[in-house]
């Protein structure tokens, strides 16, 4: 082999993994997929045979939890398995989730099981940079460990913008990259965001399969955003 052929092979070998990774990312990246054009309203209980069967809902804290529970108050989740994710120390979100579950139990209908996941909080208010870096790493490792303990990874991840959304969504996106799950990410931006997305929203825009905003201004500003009015 002459020098040039060798070089071509070496460069080729070097570029191959990058090419494969890029292809895989393109395959799972929602922004390059085709948008759904279905206009009929569907109900969850009608479609669950032979499809994804579990949902993970993140309850951030105070206002985020309040919006999420209001969004879900008209959604019937009884036919899918539910995992509620709360941050450590956030007992009021846990209470809200249990209240929601109690209503299903009281209805006496047949109902899929549910569980609770408590994640180590990524960053506390007023923390120094170094210790916040430390706790971010800890929260990342903790999240991966907790997810591995679940009997199955969620089919749908529902988020509405607290800081903890970002590591959770990217970890599941990473797992999707390696073919470990096929979690669809639905992000609903907080009603408090009128003209500008939150940092979580900006970071999650590229990897969310559905990205929903609650103000028309945001819908016009971001190409992939969907808008259906106020949802809470």
């Amino acid at each position: 082999m002459d020098y040039e052929t060798k070089l071509v092979f070496q460069v080729g070998l070097l570029l191959l993994p990058i090419f494969v990774v890029a292809l895989r990312v393109l395959a799972i990246l929602p922004s390059v997929g085709l948008g759904s054009s279905n206009k009929d309203l569907k109900s969850i209980s009608d479609i669950t045979s032979g499809t994804g069967s579990s949902i993970m809902v993140l309850l951030g804290s105070g206002g985020h939890t309040g919006e999420m529970m209001r969004i879900l108050s008209n959604v019937d989740l009884s036919s899918v398995r539910r995992t509620w994710v709360v941050s450590s120390g956030d007992s009021s979100s846990l209470v809200r989730a249990k209240e929601f579950e109690d209503k299903y139990q009281q209805n006496g209908k047949t109902c899929k099981s549910s569980e609770y996941l408590t994640l180590y909080r990524a960053r506390k208010v007023g923390e120094s940079l170094l210790s916040s870096l430390n706790s971010t790493v800890r929260s990342f490792v903790d999240t991966v460990n907790q997810l591995r303990k679940l009997p199955e990874l969620p089919s749908v991840l529902l988020l509405n913008g607290p800081g903890t959304s970002v590591p959770l969504a990217y970890i599941l996106f990473g797992m999707k990259f390696f073919g470990l799950c096929n979690t669809r990410i639905i992000y609903i931006e907080s009603l408090a965001r009128v003209n500008k997305l939150s940092l979580s929203g900006l970071l999650l825009l590229p990897i969310s399969d559905r990205f929903i905003v609650q103000w028309e201004q945001l819908y016009h500003k971001y190409k992939r955003a969907e808008y259906y009015g106020i949802l809470i």
Partner: peptide, 21 residues
């Protein structure tokens, strides 16, 4: 204040569940 269309969220979740096979 206009009433909101909450059914839409259930429908979006249903659509994504169908795609998550």
């Amino acid at each position: 204040f206009p009433a909101n269309k909450k059914e839409i969220v259930e429908s979006i979740i249903a659509e994504e569940l169908q795609k998550a096979v």
